[in-house]
Design a protein around this nucleic acid. Structure first.
Lengths: 229, 229
DNA sequence: TATATGTTTTTGGTATACCATATTTTTAAT
DNA sequence: ATTAAAAATATGGTATACCAAAAACATATA
């Protein structure tokens, strides 16, 4: 339940956000956590009842998630959690690679020294976790590394655009990152990105980023070929 | 009025789309045509009444346009047509430059010969129109050139993402493209892009694209500095 | 006259009732 | 028993009624 009482909790004016946005946050989290899997349907009445809201804000949330590419709404069909094809995943990763390469280049100019150090810290944490068992922890550190680099560009438009693909790619990347074998390669790739940032070498960072994402594409492709969906 | 009669016109199942989407199309067109200018408010009741629909589909349209970045919705405020700052425009153009550079690179590999010829045709039409009076016609040809290059990449994700920035940047680019002086430079830039595509030279196309967009950024910056908003 | 306060109005946010259509189930006929 | 038609049902799409909060306005007071 999001709101069982009529009276809302007193919030500061800036923090106030519509129920629709709150519902969107809940559903988005469920998709990322795998509680809602690709292909799952989201019937309006049932879902809104389960969340304790009416259909109106639920529909608002669905529209938001549709715009983000996480949900597909077809006429006269229940909304469905997006289930991107390998082709679509590849296309997204190509775009994402360009965005991260751009972010890396800008970061070489715009990032403060402490921001670069923070990125190094994340990288070091990732190195330390590389031989641990927990795949989720490793994956989240991996993702936060990419987020940190993009954030260092300080380009809000770029950050937001990147984040949208980030979310849409989350599940596929999580599934492929599970392969322990790929951890070593990822760590190596990140190391060269970090080195490029430290030297503020735009070309190195840019190409390292692209190379890294190219490997991710290969991993995703391999997984799809293997499970033959 | 979108729908004055209860009964809808019989449509093929695939063509059917919700009223909300139709309204979004109408409002989007109004923004592009300048009938709705940045900063204009879009009160829900008034606007829905004017369009002959209820508030529900109008809100749906507003949510779509908000996701596209064309409209801003703040709590307890009437929705407002987005009025991007110079900083935001610059950030968008930087991202757009990367997207178009990527599209150009892919197009060098993926575009058919006839697609490249079609791009050449657009370019030739632009050359022919360069000394005409009508700024709108020239601008639309200019934009269709960029669209054609991106379309030639055949990467749907890229095409869609590019299109969103395309729409958000439309007005600013239109205003700056008005300067007749910049036509010559634009035509020259396009010429080198076309040449790169013909030779299927990824590096040339990519760098030409970036250079071209960099000039656009300069033009936009100059205009903002001039009118001192 | 200026300011503070209380009231009215306007606005977006939410819930709900209704509608049209697509789907499923039932029933009847061959 | 199979199939076709018809009725029932479930689903998303739309309109509307209602609510709370914010803004605008008016009024009274210093």
């Amino acid at each position: 339940m999001l709101q069982t009482t009529k009276k809302m909790i007193k919030m500061s004016p800036l923090a106030r956000q519509s129920l629709g946005n709150q519902v969107a946050d809940v559903l988005r989290a469920q998709v990322l956590l795998g509680e809602l899997k690709p292909g799952d349907v989201i019937p309006e009445r049932e879902t809104s009842a389960a969340l304790g809201v009416s259909r109106t804000p639920l529909r608002e949330a669905l529209l938001i998630l549709e715009a983000e590419g996480l949900v597909e709404m077809l006429p006269a069909k229940s909304p469905v959690v997006a289930n991107p094809s390998l082709l679509e995943l590849t296309q997204m990763l190509l775009v994402q690679a360009s965005l991260e390469a751009l972010a890396g280049e800008i970061a070489c100019v715009e990032a403060t020294q402490s921001e670069i150090e923070a990125i190094e810290d994340i990288h070091n944490k990732m190195v330390a976790t590389a031989h641990d068992a927990d795949p989720i922890a490793f994956f989240e550190i991996d993702m936060s590394f990419h987020e940190a680099v993009v954030a260092a560009s300080k380009n809000d438009v770029l950050i937001k655009t990147h984040n949208q693909f980030h979310v849409r790619l989350w599940r596929a990347r999580f599934l492929t990152a599970g392969k322990v074998a790929s951890r070593e390669t990822s760590v190596g790739d990140h190391a060269s990105i970090v080195e490029g940032l430290r030297r503020r070498d735009k070309e190195k960072v840019s190409s390292s980023m692209r190379d890294h994402l190219r490997k991710v594409i290969d991993n995703v492709t391999a997984m799809y070929a293997h499970q033959e969906t």
